[in-house]
C-alpha cells in the first residue's frame, strides 16, 4: 500500500482510467501541459498525449457541452472545472442536457461524463474560490453527486464515477488535497502521510457510489457530514469525549438513506454538518428524510451546523467556516451537556 495525498490519489485514479480505457479523455482549463492548478492531472498529458488530455479555452459551458458531445460519440470524458465556483456558466448544459439525455431519449442515448470540481473553503479563497454547491446539483434529477473526504475514497470514488454510465459531479474538498483538516487554522498543517485513509492501493479499486461510510461507531449521537467537515466533527466529538457515531455521506445522490437512518434509529440524536450555506442546503434534505423515517426514535430535535447564509467572506473566513466550536455548541445543546 502506498501513502498518497488526495491530489496524488486522484491523479492515480485518472492515470489508471486513461490506461485501461482508450475512451477516457481528460479536459479542462490548464489540465494539459501544466497539469492543473492543483496538480491533479500532473504528468498525464505527457504520458497519454494531447488528444487524451486536452487544455481548453476558459469556457465552462463549452467544456461541458464538448464533453457531452464526446460522450455521445462513445468517449468517457472527465472534465475538470478549475473551481466549483466557476461551474455556473456550464449549469444549463449540466441541468438541461447532461442530466436529461438518457431520460429524454427514452434510454437510447447516454452521456457518461464525470465533472471534477474543487470545492469548499479554508484556503483564503474568498467568495469566488470557496463555494460548496452540492445542493444545487443534488436537486437535479439525472446526475449523481459525490464528495470524498480522504485520499482512499477519492481514488475509489473517482474510478467508480468514470466507470459509471450516468453523469457524475465529483466535488473535491480542496482544503483536504494535501492533508486532513480539523477546522483549526491556527494549528500547523497535517499531512495525509500517517493517516489511515492516506494509505491508498496503487491499483484499481472502486468505492461504490451511493454508499455512506460509518467513520466511527458510537451510541450517543449520530453526526452526519461530508467533505472537510468530516474531520471537523471528528475533532469536535473527540474534544467533548462524546460517543458519537460519525457518518461520511460520500454520495449525496444517490443517498444511502438506510445507513443514515439505521444509525439515527440507534442513537436517537442527529447532528448534520456541512460547509455550504444552511438555507435550502443539502442538510435540509438530510434532516427531512431523517425526520420522516426516524421520528419515533428521535429524542431531540435534529440540529444543523452549516455555513452562514452569506457569500464566503475573505476577511471573515474563520468566523464563517462551521468549525469545531460551532459543532461543540450544537452537540452540547443536543446532549444537554454543560
Amino acid at each position: 500500500m502506498a501513502q498518497m495525498t488526495m491530489t496524488q490519489s486522484l491523479n492515480s485514479a485518472l492515470n489508471l482510467c486513461l490506461e485501461k480505457d482508450p475512451g477516457v479523455v481528460v479536459l479542462g482549463e490548464d489540465v494539459g501541459f501544466f497539469g492543473g492548478v492543483f496538480r491533479v492531472t500532473d504528468g498525464l498529458q505527457a504520458k497519454y498525449g494531447e488528444h487524451r488530455v486536452l487544455d481548453t479555452p476558459i469556457s465552462e459551458g463549452g467544456i461541458i457541452a464538448a464533453a457531452i458531445g464526446m460522450a455521445l460519440n462513445g468517449l468517457r470524458p472527465v472534465v475538470e472545472i478549475q473551481f466549483a465556483d466557476y461551474i455556473y456558466p456550464g449549469y444549463d448544459q449540466i441541468v438541461s442536457e447532461l442530466a436529461r439525455i438518457r431520460y429524454r431519449s427514452g434510454g437510447a442515448f447516454n452521456a457518461p461524463v464525470t465533472i471534477r470540481a474543487p470545492c469548499g473553503g479554508g484556503i483564503r479563497g474568498g467568495q469566488t474560490h470557496s463555494q460548496s454547491p452540492e445542493a444545487i446539483f443534488a436537486h437535479i434529477c439525472g446526475i449523481k453527486v459525490v464528495m470524498p473526504s480522504n485520499p482512499y475514497d477519492a481514488k475509489g470514488l473517482l474510478i467508480a464515477a468514470i466507470e459509471d454510465d450516468d453523469p457524475v459531479l465529483f466535488l473535491e474538498p480542496k482544503r483536504l488535497y494535501n492533508g486532513p483538516f480539523d477546522g483549526d487554522p491556527g494549528k500547523p498543517s497535517v499531512a495525509w502521510n500517517g493517516h489511515p485513509k492516506g494509505e491508498v492501493p496503487e491499483g484499481h479499486y472502486t468505492v461504490p457510489i451511493g454508499s455512506a461510510e460509518i467513520v466511527r461507531t458510537g451510541a450517543q449521537v449520530t453526526i452526519i457530514s461530508y467533505g472537510t467537515m468530516v474531520h471537523v466533527v471528528e475533532a469536535a466529538a473527540r474534544s467533548l469525549n462524546v460517543d458519537a457515531e460519525i457518518i461520511d455521506v460520500r454520495s449525496m445522490v444517490p443517498l444511502d438513506v438506510e445507513t443514515l437512518c439505521a444509525s439515527v434509529d440507534k442513537t436517537g440524536r442527529c447532528l448534520i454538518a456541512h460547509e455550504a450555506t444552511r438555507f435550502g442546503g443539502f442538510g435540509a434534505e438530510l434532516m427531512a428524510t431523517i425526520q420522516e423515517r426516524c421520528f419515533w426514535n428521535l429524542e431531540a430535535p435534529i440540529e444543523r451546523v452549516c455555513g452562514w447564509d452569506t457569500p464566503y467572506p475573505h476577511a471573515f473566513e474563520w468566523d464563517y467556516f462551521p468549525g469545531k466550536d460551532r459543532v461543540v455548541v450544537a452537540l452540547k445543546t443536543m446532549l444537554g451537556l454543560p
Partner: peptide
C-alpha cells in the same frame, strides 16, 4: 445547447 455538443462529438471523431 446542442451546437457545442456537436463540436464535442466532432472532436471525439477526430480523437
Amino acid at each position: 445547447t446542442q451546437f457545442p455538443q456537436a463540436v464535442g462529438w466532432a472532436m471525439a471523431a477526430a480523437i
